[in-house]
């Protein structure tokens, strides 16, 4: 077993979009993440898998500093976005979250119209020069999220009136609208039915390459279907990181093998 495989550092060519080195996260006295190092690439979807409470969501939320909202959370180590340390005092957290978008477990559209849901991000960041420009951003974002055809005639309807799957795609479109570099997805399908889940997975396929995507999932089949790289977390540590096919067919660690064969989790 090579050291790079265990720590998750990439060895192949191309600079990674985001790099994490020796990241520890503490909630008060409790350590939730222990010495995790990982690289996220632009051209692949990275899946974080692991049993409940293993720290995969915690780690994901460190990548756009959403953990800042929890007063007792403390992050040490180094996470870089294109070489910039995101925890340095020079990094503007508001801009960081625009560059590293997030989709949450439960669809959470704003209780506003579909149009305003998408337009909110571009508005607060001043990304549109005028009304037409904004209209265009809304249309292209909805189109990329595969929702345009379903909602183009009712853009002024409330976003909360959509079905669960549509709401989640609306949230993805909302994240896309601010033109992020990385999209973090925290169990985006766990509140959805199989058909809606299939649509989201299809969407992830289409978005791959345009954005670096990191997805946390409980569902190992989903990880196998959508991702090219998989990281297996257990009790706050990164057990194994590698090509998805390798992880699922030929895991190096016994713990990984036990988990993916369903012995625990």
């Amino acid at each position: 077993m090579t050291d790079s495989a265990k720590t998750g550092m990439t060895t192949e060519s191309g600079t990674p979009k985001m790099t994490a080195r020796n990241v520890d996260v503490f909630y008060g006295d409790k350590q939730a993440i222990n010495n995790v190092s990982i690289d996220v690439n632009m051209d692949s979807v990275t899946a974080f898998i692991g049993p409940s409470g293993c720290g995969k969501s915690t780690f994901l939320r460190c990548m756009n500093r959403m953990n800042d909202t929890i007063p007792i959370a403390r992050v040490t180590g180094e996470i870089k976005l294109e070489g910039e340390d995101i925890y340095s005092s020079k990094m503007d957290v508001v801009q960081l979250r625009a560059r590293v978008g997030m989709v949450f477990q439960k669809p959470n559209p704003f209780p506003k119209s579909i149009y305003d849901n998408i337009a909110y991000g571009p508005r607060i960041h001043g990304l549109a020069t005028g009304k037409e420009d904004l209209d265009e951003i809304v249309e292209s974002s909805l189109q990329r999220a595969g929702l345009w055809g379903e909602v183009k005639d009712r853009l002024q309807d409330s976003g909360t009136a959509l079905s669960g799957g549509q709401q989640q795609r609306l949230c993805i479109a909302r994240a896309i609208a601010v033109d992020p570099e990385v999209i973090l997805m925290d169990e985006p399908c766990s509140a959805l039915d199989p058909i809606a889940t299939a649509k989201i997975e299809e969407l992830i396929h289409e978005l791959r390459g345009k954005y670096a995507i990191v997805i946390v999932t409980h569902n190992m089949q989903q990880a196998a279907r959508v991702s090219q790289k998989t990281a297996f977390f257990h009790l706050g540590t990164l057990v194994e990181y590698g090509e998805t096919t390798d992880i699922f067919t030929n895991p190096r660690e016994e713990k990984t093998r036990d988990y993916i064969t369903g012995r625990y989790g």
Partner: peptide, 21 residues
């Protein structure tokens, strides 16, 4: 609901914007 705050923070709204918008 906290999910509304997270949604706004997640697309880069400042704390002030989260509160007032």
């Amino acid at each position: 609901p906290p999910s509304i705050r997270e949604a706004a923070l997640g697309i880069g709204a400042s704390p002030l914007q989260v509160v007032f918008h």
